[in-house]
Each structure stands twice: as C-alpha cells, then as structure tokens.
C-alpha cells in the first residue's frame, strides 16, 4: 500500500516535481505543531526520566547526585521492588476471564435477542465512570458492616438475603485480589463487549443465513463461524491484557491503597517517588516497566506479522 501514494507516471515528470516540493512543505507544516508538542510534553520529560534514573534526586531537584547504575542495581537486588509484579498474575487471569466473558456476552447479544441495546447500555456504562467514583462505590460494595457505625455493604446485604453469612472481603488476603479483579472487570468489560459486538456484526449476514439453513445451534455458530472470524482481535486483546496486567495501578491504588498484599509495581513506583522522595529510583523503575512493555510489544508485532 505504501509506495502507491504518489506513483510517478513518466508523462507527468514535471508535474511530480512540483508535488515533491509540496509534499515536503506539507510534511513540515502539518507536523510542526504535533512534533513540537510531542517533544515538549513527552520526549523531553522522557529523556529527563532516563537521566534521572542514573541520579539520586528528590522531588525538588536540589542536591542531585550522579550514582551510575546504583538505582538499577538496587532494583534488581532488593526483592521488594520486582516482587510487586507478582500480583499482576491476578489481573492477567482476570483479563482472560474478562475477554472470555465479554466474548460470550457479545455473542449472546448478537443472536436474536430482545432488549439487546438495553443490556449493552447497562453493561457499557461503568466504562464511562470516574475512577474515584468507582473506588468509593466498591469500598461500599465490599464493606463488612459492624452494625454500629454503618450497615452491611452491598455484596453482604445480597448474601444475607439468601441467608449466607457476611464476609470480610477486603480484609482477607486470600480473596482481596480477586475482589479487586472483579472491580476491574466490572469497570472495563463493557468496552470489550461493545468491541466484540462490533467485530461480530461485521461478519457477513450471508454466512449466518447459510448456517441457519443448515440448522446450526448457537454453540456451533459461535465455534465455526464467529470465533474464526474474530480470532485476530481476540489475539490482540490478549496481548493488550498482558500489558495492562504489568502496569495495573488504578483499581488497587484507589480501593485498598496496595495494602493486604494488593500492591503492584506501579503503586510501588509511586510510593518510591513521592513517599520516599527517590525520584531517581522511581525513574529507573519506570524505565524497567517501559522495557517490559517494549518486549511485549515486540512479541505482539512479531506474532501479527507471522499471522499475516
């Protein structure tokens, strides 16, 4: 596709010359502002972050000291930093579940179902909500009431309607991460559902009709028609899920503050930077995170090239 843009035709050589000049002019003019903004607000700060990672410095940037690779050495020798990646596993598993569930719901909503738009609308809405609102809502959702200062939270109230005993959801280190993953799925699944619906709807209706004529059931329809068609998107989503899982931050940060064994690498980075005033070390952590994301991206690119 690339080279076709201005395919020169010999009879128009002079004409093309004019356009070549124009092409450069347009390139410069169109890219001037975006590039200036990119350099100012992304590249210079990023280069600075790289420089900081070799320094010992606080948030105020006074008394800066060059420390070579000390920050990186500390990062890879003191297990308390990289070990925070462990919780990413929960979110990784969670996002696989999320993708599966989203795909399933999307498939259901694409079959002949009444009120499909209502279902879709309800499921999508949390995606549009403010992160703080979500955190407050889920603190109330998982609350274990004491009957004195407050009543049972949403989840326990429902459990008790069915006669079950209330549970301390966020206090129990064995289940708290699952609770957070649940909140994360609650918030983001609507986006995936809508996306998969779009993908499924772009499958030609002829194919469905043929299947219906042959009397295919829902599962057959999904497995033999829908899934093969949207496989590339599913693959892309899973790789994005890995990226999301290594850099997960907002949901645990705002609901539990990373306590009870819910901390993540990005939370640790923020604490290192702002609680302990180690901007240098935090920058090194950000660089490590960047490296991991770059590796995943490279794998993703390789994977998709192969498929094509």
């Amino acid at each position: 596709m690339a080279a076709e843009t201005v395919k020169p035709k010999r009879t128009f050589i002079q004409w093309i010359r004019g356009y070549t000049g124009q092409k450069y002019l347009t390139t410069v003019l169109f890219l001037l502002i975006p590039l200036v903004l990119l350099i100012l607000f992304t590249l210079i700060p990023a280069v600075n972050m790289g420089i900081f990672s070799f320094q010992k410095r606080d948030q105020l940037g006074v008394s800066v000291e060059w420390v070579g690779f000390d920050n990186y050495v500390r990062l890879f020798t003191d297990s308390s930093y990289l070990s925070t990646f462990a919780n990413s596993i929960y979110y990784l598993i969670g996002s696989f579940v999320q993708q599966g569930l989203a795909l399933f719901i999307a498939t259901l909503l694409c079959s002949k179902i009444k009120l499909a738009n209502v279902f879709k609308g309800v499921l999508f809405f949390p995606y549009m909500m403010n992160g703080v609102a979500v955190s407050l809502i889920f603190r109330r959702f998982f609350q274990k009431g004491d009957g004195i200062t407050n009543t049972e939270g949403t989840l326990n109230s429902i459990l008790m309607m069915f006669g079950a005993d209330p549970v301390k959801w966020l206090s129990n280190p064995d289940i708290v991460n699952f609770c957070l993953v649940f909140a994360s799925i609650w918030r983001y699944i609507g986006f995936d559902i809508v996306m998969y619906i779009g993908a499924i709807q772009s499958i030609s209706p002829d194919v469905y009709e043929a299947a219906d004529l042959d009397g295919a059931n829902a599962w057959q329809r999904f497995w033999y028609i829908i899934f093969p068609s949207i496989r590339p998107i599913v693959a892309l989503q899973l790789i994005l899920a890995i990226k999301g899982a290594v850099s997960v931050f907002e949901i645990p940060y705002i609901i539990t503050g990373g306590r009870n064994g819910t901390s993540t690498f990005v939370i640790k980075t923020i604490e290192t930077a702002f609680q302990y005033q180690k901007i240098g070390l935090a920058s090194a952590m950000a660089i490590v995170l960047l490296a991991i994301i770059l590796i995943i991206t490279a794998i993703q690119k390789a994977f998709f090239r192969e498929r094509k």
Binding site: L38, P45, A46, V266, A273, M285, A286, L289, L290
Partner: peptide
C-alpha cells in the same frame, strides 16, 4: 514509542 511510555516520573519536567 511515546505511546508506550509510563509517565510516572515525568510530571516534574512537564
């Protein structure tokens, strides 16, 4: 590349 940058330690410069 810029899209992948984690912007944790960047806001001082910004």
């Amino acid at each position: 590349f810029a899209a992948l940058l984690p912007n944790i330690a960047m806001q001082v410069t910004v």
